[in-house]
Amino acid sequence: MAIDASPLALPSEVAAYFRTSEAKLAQDRFRGIGPRYVKHGRRVLYRWADVHAWADANTLQRTDDRPVAS
């Protein structure tokens, strides 16, 4: 399935998008620092819109962690 073909993504798809592991995404969910997600029973899903918004909000230009001015 192509990225963005569905409005919802599995953790494996989001991990591939960010080039990280599903375990790192799970840790981010636990710490409350990653992209917003949807719970359907025990299943975790991400909205691509939330994934892109989180990436945009966490785009940095400097090493002092100040956000990039839009």
Score class of each variant (00 low, 15 high):
residue 9 A to Y: 01
residue 27 Q to A: 15
residue 9 A to I: 08
residue 54 W to Q: 00
residue 35 P to V: 08
residue 48 W to E: 02
residue 8 L to K: 10
residue 39 K to W: 03
residue 11 P to Y: 09
residue 17 Y to L: 09
residue 22 E to T: 15
residue 37 Y to L: 01
residue 68 V to C: 08
residue 38 V to E: 14
residue 55 A to H: 06
residue 63 T to Q: 09
residue 35 P to R: 01
residue 25 L to P: 05
residue 37 Y to E: 00
residue 60 L to K: 09
residue 41 G to A: 07
residue 46 Y to L: 04
residue 16 A to S: 11
residue 51 V to K: 02
residue 10 L to I: 05
residue 2 A to V: 13
residue 4 D to S: 04
residue 25 L to R: 01
residue 41 G to H: 02
residue 55 A to N: 12
residue 24 K to D: 10
residue 33 I to Y: 03
residue 61 Q to T: 11
residue 59 T to F: 07
residue 3 I to L: 15
residue 38 V to T: 13
residue 21 S to P: 12
residue 41 G to V: 06
residue 58 N to M: 01
residue 58 N to K: 04
residue 23 A to F: 09
residue 33 I to C: 07
residue 42 R to P: 01
residue 59 T to C: 04
residue 43 R to Y: 12
residue 22 E to H: 04
residue 52 H to E: 05
residue 7 P to S: 09
residue 52 H to F: 05
residue 68 V to R: 15
residue 39 K to V: 09
residue 61 Q to P: 06
residue 55 A to D: 03
residue 29 R to V: 00
residue 30 F to Q: 15
residue 50 D to S: 00
residue 59 T to E: 10
residue 27 Q to T: 14
residue 9 A to F: 01
residue 5 A to Y: 10
residue 36 R to F: 00
residue 48 W to Q: 03
residue 59 T to A: 08
residue 10 L to V: 06
residue 70 S to H: 11
residue 66 R to K: 14
residue 59 T to Y: 05
residue 6 S to E: 14
residue 8 L to S: 11
residue 33 I to E: 05
residue 17 Y to Q: 07
residue 49 A to N: 07
residue 59 T to D: 07
residue 30 F to H: 15
residue 49 A to V: 15
residue 50 D to P: 13
residue 30 F to M: 12
residue 28 D to V: 04
residue 36 R to C: 04
residue 33 I to L: 08
residue 13 E to G: 15
residue 3 I to C: 11
residue 27 Q to C: 03
residue 3 I to V: 14
residue 43 R to N: 12
residue 53 A to G: 00
residue 57 A to W: 04
residue 63 T to L: 15
residue 61 Q to A: 14
residue 29 R to H: 01
residue 64 D to Q: 04
residue 19 R to G: 11
residue 67 P to N: 07
residue 35 P to H: 06
residue 4 D to R: 11
residue 32 G to Y: 10
residue 31 R to I: 07
residue 10 L to E: 11
residue 52 H to W: 09
residue 41 G to K: 08
residue 19 R to D: 12
residue 37 Y to I: 03
residue 66 R to H: 13
residue 20 T to V: 07
residue 11 P to D: 02
residue 57 A to H: 03
residue 22 E to L: 02
residue 26 A to G: 04
residue 49 A to P: 02
residue 31 R to M: 11
residue 60 L to R: 15
residue 54 W to A: 04
residue 64 D to K: 07
residue 70 S to I: 12
residue 51 V to E: 02
residue 65 D to L: 14
residue 6 S to A: 13
residue 7 P to N: 09
residue 21 S to N: 01
residue 27 Q to W: 08
residue 13 E to V: 10
residue 25 L to A: 07
residue 62 R to F: 14
residue 22 E to R: 02
residue 13 E to F: 00
residue 19 R to M: 10
residue 25 L to D: 00
residue 1 M to H: 13
residue 65 D to C: 10
residue 50 D to C: 00
residue 6 S to F: 14
residue 67 P to G: 08
residue 11 P to W: 07
residue 14 V to N: 05
residue 69 A to D: 06
residue 24 K to C: 12
residue 16 A to D: 12
residue 68 V to S: 06
residue 23 A to P: 00
residue 6 S to P: 03
residue 12 S to A: 14
residue 27 Q to N: 13
residue 47 R to N: 05
residue 4 D to V: 08
residue 38 V to R: 15
residue 25 L to V: 03
residue 25 L to G: 03
residue 67 P to R: 05
residue 43 R to H: 14
residue 69 A to R: 09
residue 59 T to I: 05
residue 29 R to N: 07
